[in-house]
């Protein structure tokens, strides 16, 4: 199933949740909608599911107008952020629900429903919980039951709203890996919403980065990390150093200090310079584009993180390899291995 979104607009009162969104999702893809809260990602997901309706724009499933169908005709599996399991039903009945409410003409007999539910519970590896109630499950188990319930109706598309948002860090990591392998197994076109970049980059085939109701970038996890298309994406994904600079006559200035950085093809005016923390290479004083005094150093896993007061007055944080000798009070030179400058 392919999904195509054309110029979707949705406002809530005066708030523009979606401001002209275009998107194509390929068959069998696992796509992440990534963005901060209020970026419109959940609204987009709900419109695809038929839970919300756009003010204007088009939504096509396999080239057919999906907006002509209500939620229950679309055959979309939706996994809610807080799972929305039916509390008064057992795990088994929760999963069976979608099969039991089918129109009588196509409803399967009890034995078939039982077999199908069992199959789904096996798939999410929780068949031993079928008699329990949702309140007796852990967060991770509820999540997987919600997924099994959504899969019961053999959805054409699987949508997940912040699927790992309500889980603790360890369970979240396990479930991520599990979701990716599950997708590999069932291969249904899937979209999940997240505000956690690590999650998006680790799980998805493609990532859609959204901000303020617009799509900022669509690309593979490597693309959005390695070549961010906008200042927003650079700032949002990965840990970046951001410095306000001026571009004038082919020269980049930080404050009144010119930086030895190429400014080819940059529009003159106020701009922002982005460097990944680990892309700032440390050298002797005077060796790089920047110079600064180390204020504070602490070890941080495989790297050491140093707070450096640049001579322009700004203080930045850099990540340097542990074998580099850094001490508070040192004056160092800094050379960005890679950097991006965006106007504005």
């Amino acid at each position: 199933m392919t999904i195509e979104v054309r110029n979707l607009v949705k406002t809530f009162g005066s708030f523009k949740a979606l401001d002209g969104v275009d998107l194509k999702v390929n068959d069998g893809e696992l796509l992440a909608l990534l963005g901060p809260s209020g970026s419109g990602k959940t609204t987009l997901l709900r419109i695809i599911a038929g839970l919300d309706w756009p003010d204007s724009g088009e939504l096509l499933f396999n080239g057919e107008d999906a907006l002509a169908q209500g939620a229950r005709e679309r055959h979309v599996g939706f996994v809610f952020q807080h799972y929305a399991l039916f509390r008064h039903m057992t795990v088994f009945e929760n999963v069976a629900f979608g099969l039991r409410v089918q129109p009588r003409a196509i409803r399967k007999d009890e034995a078939t429903i039982r077999a199908r539910v069992k199959e789904l519970l096996d798939l999410v590896q929780l068949d031993w919980l079928s008699g329990r109630y949702p309140s007796q499950l852990s967060g991770g188990q509820r999540q997987r039951i919600a997924l099994a319930r959504a899969l019961a109706i053999e959805p054409r598309i699987l949508l997940l709203d912040e699927p790992f948002g309500a889980l603790d860090a360890k369970v979240r990591k396990e479930l991520r890996r599990w979701l990716r392998s599950l997708h590999h197994e069932i291969h249904v076109t899937s979209i999940f919403v997240t505000h956690d970049q690590e999650e998006a980059l680790e799980v998805a085939n493609r990532v859609v980065v959204m901000d303020k109701g617009r799509i900022e970038q669509i690309g593979s996890p490597d693309d959005v990390y390695e070549s961010p298309a906008s200042a927003f994406v650079h700032g949002f994904i990965g840990e970046s150093i951001e410095l306000p600079v001026q571009v004038e006559g082919g020269i980049v200035r930080l404050g009144d200090r010119p930086l030895a950085l190429a400014a080819d093809g940059l529009a003159p005016g106020a701009s922002r310079l982005f460097v990944r923390r680990h892309d700032m290479l440390v050298g002797p004083p005077g060796s790089g584009a920047f110079e600064g005094a180390v204020q504070h150093v602490r070890n941080f896993g495989p790297v050491q993180r140093a707070e450096v007061a640049l001579s322009g007055g700004k203080t930045i944080e850099i990540d340097a390899p542990r074998d580099k000798e850094l001490r508070a009070g040192d004056t160092i030179g800094l050379e960005p291995r890679r950097y991006r400058i965006f106007a504005g």
């Binding site: 939620a71 229950r72 629900f97």
Partner: peptide, 15 residues
């Protein structure tokens, strides 16, 4: 009552 409950039922095909 969580509105998601009703949305879930609807998206699973319940009238």
């Amino acid at each position: 009552l969580d509105p998601e409950i009703e949305e879930a039922a609807g998206s699973l095909g319940a009238n």
